[in-house]
């Protein structure tokens, strides 16, 4: 039993807080309708397994993703966020993801600056044909966030983890 206690997972931002046994992260996946959502659909229809930790929200375009969405998800249940859209140049709305890209960089750097680990906020470009890539991305993100432990920062009262 002692070895188990030693191996306990701690929150990377607050090392004094230990994760409960069998803790699984919750990841908010915000996917664009035209590429990544179709890509995730292809992953499912091709029977490729990916971790069930991701909770998917569909948005019209990656530029619909307000930095506010990330803040709100991190404040509630999420331990990490994954935002995914079309590859640059492939946007259904021609230039949406170019605008989104700027916002993502600034949001990621700012959240890292105020004390979130940079791996908690992740971005990816997944096209509608890249089913295996989507599974790979979700696997990687889940693995990375599992290492960081539960998020204990700025949770709303209802969502504070014991």
């Amino acid at each position: 039993m002692e070895t188990e206690v030693k191996d306990q997972l701690v929150s990377i931002e607050k090392p004094e807080l230990v994760a409960p046994p069998n803790w699984e992260p919750v990841i908010m996946g915000i996917l664009c309708n035209w590429c990544s959502y179709a890509g995730s659909d292809l992953t499912g229809t091709s029977r490729i397994q990916y971790p069930p930790n991701i909770r998917i929200i569909r948005v019209p375009c990656s530029s619909r993703v307000d930095p506010w969405f990330l803040i709100k998800s991190l404040q509630t249940t999420a331990d990490g966020v994954l935002v995914s859209g079309c590859h640059p140049g492939d946007c259904h709305y021609i230039t949406g993801n170019y605008y989104a890209r700027r916002r993502f960089l600034v949001t990621k750097k700012l959240l890292n600056f105020v004390g979130f680990h940079e791996n908690r906020i992740q971005f990816s470009w997944v096209s509608a044909a890249e089913g295996p890539k989507f599974a790979k991305v979700v696997n990687k993100v889940t693995e990375e966030i599992k290492k960081l432990g539960p998020l204990h920062l700025y949770k709303k009262e209802n969502f504070e983890k014991k």
Binding site: Y98, Y99, R102, V106, Q122, F123
Partner: peptide, 15 residues
């Protein structure tokens, strides 16, 4: 800065 874009914007932080 968020009302415009450039093709040269950094992309390396995106998977």
């Amino acid at each position: 800065a968020f009302y415009k874009y450039s093709l040269k914007d950094p992309d390396d932080f995106i998977m």
